[in-house]
Design a protein around this nucleic acid. Structure first.
Lengths: 111, 111
DNA sequence: ATCCTTTATCGCGGATATAGGATAAATATA
DNA sequence: TATATTTATCCTATATCCGCGATAAAGGAT
């Protein structure tokens, strides 16, 4: 893209990036899985998803690039887990935006 | 897509769709603009965005298809405004998901 | 050293997303 | 009726996303 997005405020850009990371059910399911299970071995995530290993690995990379999860490549095993601080910041940013919208006065005079 | 996404739970699919609608700074800016201004004439939204009219119109369509905004085509003018009920539901769904994640026990034993 | 297991990456094909010029449609106005 | 205004849509180009088979990389096991 021709960098036309640079003209938007950085907080909106960050929130858009976060939304993009959340914009796939597989990634939402991976986050949920990591939250609900002790283990975070990659193979178990793959088994829990109805997708090929390569596809899951790609989603994990996307989540890692977004900073929502952490991963340690440990030889033939990889350990993934949530970045709880980052997720808390993400939740805060998202609810901050949506609450600000929700608290705006309704427009009865149109639509 | 080969309908592979159908295998995910519908609530995750809906949340992913919502996230996708929010996954562009222009759309976030449009929502913010509609929340902050009385008027919701399309032309004013176009003027407020650093994008071409055709591009803004497409983003508006995306938001409308996601159910986040309402629009009335009224001759040569169009009136757009927030669907506050839908946005409230969206905020609830998003925070419900993220809070559930955040409330999961942290995993000190890995990563 | 040779397999075996696990995971990341590459490469391809197909589907979407994004941007915007050009144009059409709808209506108000002169 | 002719014109101007406003907005949606069409079209094209480009970029990104998605899924997955194939392969590479990195250890562990025998």
């Amino acid at each position: 893209m021709l960098a036309k997005t640079d003209v938007f405020e950085s907080d909106l850009q960050e929130l858009a990036d976060l939304s993009k990371a959340l914009a796939h059910p597989a990634r939402l399911a991976i986050i949920q899985h990591l939250a609900q299970h002790e283990s975070c071995i990659c193979g178990e995530i793959v088994d829990a998803m109805p997708l090929a290993q390569a596809t899951v690995s790609r989603h994990l990379k996307t989540l890692k690039e977004a900073g929502l999860i952490k991963g340690e490549i440990d030889g033939p095993r990889s350990c993934y887990c949530l970045d709880t601080d980052a997720l808390a910041r993400a939740a805060s940013a998202m609810s901050g935006y949506l609450d600000e919208i929700a608290s705006s006065a309704p427009r009865e005079n149109c639509c």
